[in-house]
Amino acid sequence: MKKMKNALRKHYIAPYDPEHPDTVPEESAYLWIAKGVKESAPENDEDTDDAAYFDGDGTPEEIVISKKRGRSFEGHRDYGDAAQNYVADLEDAIGDELLCWYKEVQADGKQLKEGPARLSEIEIGDGEASEFESIKFKITWIKKPTKKAVVSAS
């Protein structure tokens, strides 16, 4: 089994156009979330219910009713990075101002997930005086992302 480092998983963010909510952004609109980012973690929130059925032995099954998926990011603030600046510009935004597009390419580069999302939990500048300024934020898809194979540009 081939193992891959987390750094090979690519994350991108692009502006959301409320007048064309289902139009996937052009590749050139996507900004790579990487510079200064030290950590990334899945953010999953599921609503579940338990049910037991007569075709079983009466043992309840956990059924997933709904699911929110996304990712949190944390690292050092870099004022020269376009993706970080995009997020930082929305630090005081609320509601639909926080809508964006989020794309995640798996580490082997063969498949991606993409869809409209929402930024939240934007925090900039935390820590001791001797530390580098930080940036933290979360991106959550607002509906099930589209999965597709990555097509190489060759």
Rank of each mutant, 00 (worst) to 15 (best):
R9A: 15
K10G: 02
Y12K: 03
A14T: 09
P15R: 12
D17H: 14
P18C: 14
D22H: 13
D22W: 07
T23S: 12
T23W: 01
V24C: 02
E26I: 10
E27R: 09
S28E: 14
A29S: 15
A29P: 01
Y30I: 05
W32E: 07
I33V: 10
G36K: 13
G36N: 11
V37W: 03
K38N: 06
E39I: 02
P42S: 14
D45S: 15
D47L: 06
T48C: 13
D50N: 12
A51S: 12
A52M: 06
Y53N: 13
D55Y: 05
G56Y: 12
D57A: 09
E61N: 15
V64R: 11
I65E: 15
K68A: 11
G70M: 00
S72P: 08
H76L: 05
H76N: 03
D78I: 02
Y79C: 10
Y79S: 14
D81S: 13
A83I: 04
N85A: 05
N85G: 02
V87W: 01
L90M: 10
L90K: 12
I94Y: 02
G95S: 10
D96E: 11
L98E: 04
C100T: 08
C100Y: 08
K103Q: 06
V105R: 05
V105N: 05
A107W: 03
G109V: 03
L112V: 02
L112A: 06
E114Q: 15
G115K: 05
G115W: 00
P116C: 05
A117C: 10
R118Q: 14
E123P: 09
G127D: 07
S130R: 07
F132M: 06
F132W: 02
K136S: 14
K136T: 11
F137N: 04
